[in-house]
Design a protein around this nucleic acid. Structure first.
Length: 415
DNA sequence: AAGTCGTGGAA
DNA sequence: TTTCCAAGACT
């Protein structure tokens, strides 16, 4: 069992670790969750980072923590508020499972996040990767993470070809595990930091955390040096140990499909408030259940009605392996009711939403993108009411072609 | 055990 | 323009 047969005789784990960590100490990016002590923050960052780019996570991480500063605060919040804070990040099931897990921890585990990978693995939304990430980064457990970055690094390092079978995954897991340094005995550690009483602190975690740092260094290497297409081998700290020097072949992906879709953008004034008509997706929908979007316009029977119009906006929106080519149509004036009649009332759960409250609603990414691009809703939360007035004024005065028509005299009972 | 689930940025 | 794919989990 002590043999290093998995990584081959030429890879010395100690040498690999040392080269990697020297590089990491110098080149690690400064990220908001790096150095976090609160396991809740580390948990949140790992969930957000699942299949999601660092830049996108940074845009949401801070706001989410302002809104839900502690595990308890998250557990007590309504799911709609959690989804609203997640809006734009995608994979909304992650937010639902995070919320569920927080409630379970609060009700059944005394509000304390489990401190080892096996126990973490049982929580909703925490799989093999995430359990290892939290356990190593927050609690110093010597367990290897295998994400897309690590997988690519290890395949190139060892020369193995991509293999998505159980055997392939087992190889990656065991190889990664051989390279992880051992945990530091908590008993001999420097004293743990003291934090607020409402927050769980990683008690027993030493200041130095070799497993957690190593895991992050492996991912950092994959994200910044061992790139998918053109790896920067000249800058790689472990190139002398690498079997392939960057060669890497992968399986072909499923090709993208295309779909045409259309949405209605209807805006009206109610006193000083501006409102926009949105539809709430059914709770049982498999895609973005319960979230709000612009009312969909059926493309079949009403095709002629739209054919004579020019869409206010054309936008491409990809979901998984489908490219949605979306057209946004707006009424041409207060008397233009044809578009609204095209919305199937029976199927759509329609609501007039004040634009000032849009940021508190769980909007689909496409809806949020359209409303922000057309300046119907702010890009970021506005603190001062004065700034909000200004923004609305800006929307009214905007006269460019992208400006939606405001219906000044909308009938209350249209829907 | 393949399919499904979002989004945006880079090439 | 199209293609790729990112700190995966669940069914």
């Amino acid at each position: 069992m002590g043999r290093r047969t998995e990584v081959g005789p030429e890879v010395d784990p100690a040498l690999f670790q040392q080269n990697l960590m020297e590089w990491y100490r110098v080149h690690a990016r400064k990220l908001p969750w790096r150095g976090a002590v609160d396991p809740y923050c580390i948990w949140l960052s790992e969930i957000m980072l699942q299949q999601t780019r660092v830049a996108s996570v940074i845009e949401h991480y801070h706001e989410f923590l302002l809104k839900f500063p502690t595990l308890l605060a998250l557990a007590l919040a309504p799911e709609q508020d959690v989804l609203a804070a997640w809006s734009g990040l995608g994979y909304y099931r992650r937010a639902r499972m995070l919320h569920k897990a927080a409630q379970f921890i609060t009700e059944e585990l005394g509000g304390v996040l489990p401190t080892n990978s096996v126990a973490l693995r049982t929580l909703p939304g925490i799989g093999e990767y995430t359990s290892a990430a939290i356990a190593s980064i927050a609690f110093g457990e010597s367990v290897a993470v295998v994400d897309g970055n690590v997988e690519r690094v290890l395949l190139r390092l060892t020369g193995r070809s991509e293999d998505r079978t159980a055997a392939g995954r087992a190889f990656l897991r065991s190889t990664a595990q051989e390279l992880v340094p051992g945990a530091i005995d908590a008993g001999s550690a420097t004293k743990p930091g003291v934090g607020r009483k409402t927050k769980q602190i990683a008690v027993g975690r030493p200041k130095r955390n070799p497993p957690g740092d190593h895991n992050q260094a492996m991912m950092e290497l994959g994200a910044t040096i061992c790139l998918p297409r053109a790896p920067l081998c000249l800058h790689c700290p472990v190139r002398s140990l690498c079997m392939t020097k960057g060669e890497h072949s992968t399986f072909p992906r499923a090709k993208l499909r295309s779909r045409e879709v259309a949405f209605l953008l209807s805006v009206r004034k109610r006193g000083v408030a501006t409102e926009v008509l949105l539809a709430q997706r059914p709770a049982e929908a498999s895609l973005m259940a319960g979230m709000y979007e612009l009312p969909p316009l059926p493309l079949d029977a009403e095709a002629d009605e739209m054919a004579s119009r020019e869409p206010l906006l054309r936008i491409r929106h990809a979901i998984t392996n489908t490219n949605y080519y979306a057209r946004i149509y707006a009424p041409m004036g207060p008397s233009d009711k044809a578009l609204r009649r095209a919305v199937p009332i029976a199927k759509a759960d329609l609501h007039w939403i004040r634009t000032a409250t849009l940021l508190q609603l769980p909007l689909t990414g496409l809806c949020r993108k359209v409303l922000q691009r057309l300046d119907v809703m702010p890009v970021r939360p506005l603190r001062a009411p004065i700034a909000e007035e200004k923004h609305v004024a800006g929307f009214h005065s905007q006269s460019s072609k992208g400006s939606p028509v405001i219906d000044e005299d909308e009938d209350h009972d249209s829907f």
